[in-house]
């Protein structure tokens, strides 16, 4: 068996598990990366019951540079060559910028921007013959989102990074896809939150099994941006007709209403 692996960063969340399962079904070896060791073990054990491919795990906090260095040392020591990188790890906070704690804001920026960049940059050094990179951005990356200021800016960062790197790395059999999903229904509490956003929230929901399946197809087709959900694509299309200075006001007003509903359920979500 070859030493070509797919690395899934954030492998123990709902999306991470789904990417891992659909990829191992297609015959890939998988390197599962996440923070929680016991979740990693539970998931690895269940994969090994059914599949014959290699499954390795590594516990890593991507905001810690030394841990990321150790992760890639582990990859080199085991002679692993990456054929795909699926980067899901990220944090979402829904609160006013000035009301969020300093640590939480930095944690978000560190994970979504610095940690992501760190992983992608180092992955280029251990790629196999080709490297397909899938990074979870968000529909929020297309909008200036009051109450999600740093989050939406961090997701915009990923969208532009994907576009630019696809140009820079064109001749080097490396490609990046940014998946810009709206709320992913991976847990009941997330579904509750989407419900509270009314009809818009509910229409934007797409099953994660479908999102994963189609985004893996898009990755093979060398797409740069993928927005799951017809409703979300239509929404995005319309929003491009509206000047951003007006968009931020519309979103601000909508979000204030939704915030009043979910006030009790405000929390930091580690994805």
């Amino acid at each position: 068996m070859s030493n070509n692996f797919v690395m899934v960063v954030g492998a123990t969340g709902g999306l991470g598990r789904e990417y891992s399962i659909q990829l191992i079904e297609k015959g890939y070896n998988i390197l599962l990366v996440a923070r929680d060791k016991s979740n990693l073990k539970t998931f690895k054990d269940s994969l090994l019951k059914k599949y014959k491919q290699k499954v390795l795990t590594y516990s890593c906090d991507i905001t810690d540079n030394q841990e990321v260095i150790n992760l890639f040392k582990f990859i080199e020591e085991n002679n692993i060559k990456l054929s795909k990188l699926i980067h899901i790890a990220g944090i979402e906070i829904e609160d006013w910028f000035k009301d969020t704690s300093h640590d939480d804001i930095l944690g978000l920026a560190n994970t979504n921007v610095i940690g992501t960049t760190n992983i992608i940059h180092r992955a280029l050094e251990v790629k196999g013959e080709s490297l397909d990179i899938l990074v979870m951005s968000s529909l929020a990356g297309f909008f200036p989102m009051p109450m999600k200021a740093v989050y939406s800016a961090s997701k915009r960062y990923i969208i532009e990074l994907a576009r630019t790197l696809n140009y820079e790395l064109k001749g080097e059999s490396t490609h990046i896809l940014a998946v810009c999903a709206n709320g992913m229904p991976t847990r009941p509490d997330i579904v509750e939150k989407l419900k509270s956003q009314g009809v818009f929230g509910r229409l934007s929901i797409v099953n994660i099994s479908k999102v994963v399946r189609i985004s893996l197809k898009k990755l093979n087709k060398r797409t740069t941006i993928y927005v799951p959900g017809r409703f979300n694509r239509i929404l995005l299309g319309f929003s491009k007709l509206i000047p951003r200075s007006i968009l931020v006001k519309i979103l601000g007003r909508r979000w204030k209403k939704a915030w009043q509903k979910i006030e009790a359920n405000k929390k930091v979500r580690k994805i």
Partner: peptide, 11 residues
């Protein structure tokens, strides 16, 4: 369940 969700083992 209305939406596809998995447990920690991916089931």
């Amino acid at each position: 369940r209305q939406y596809f969700m998995t447990n920690k083992e991916g089931y």
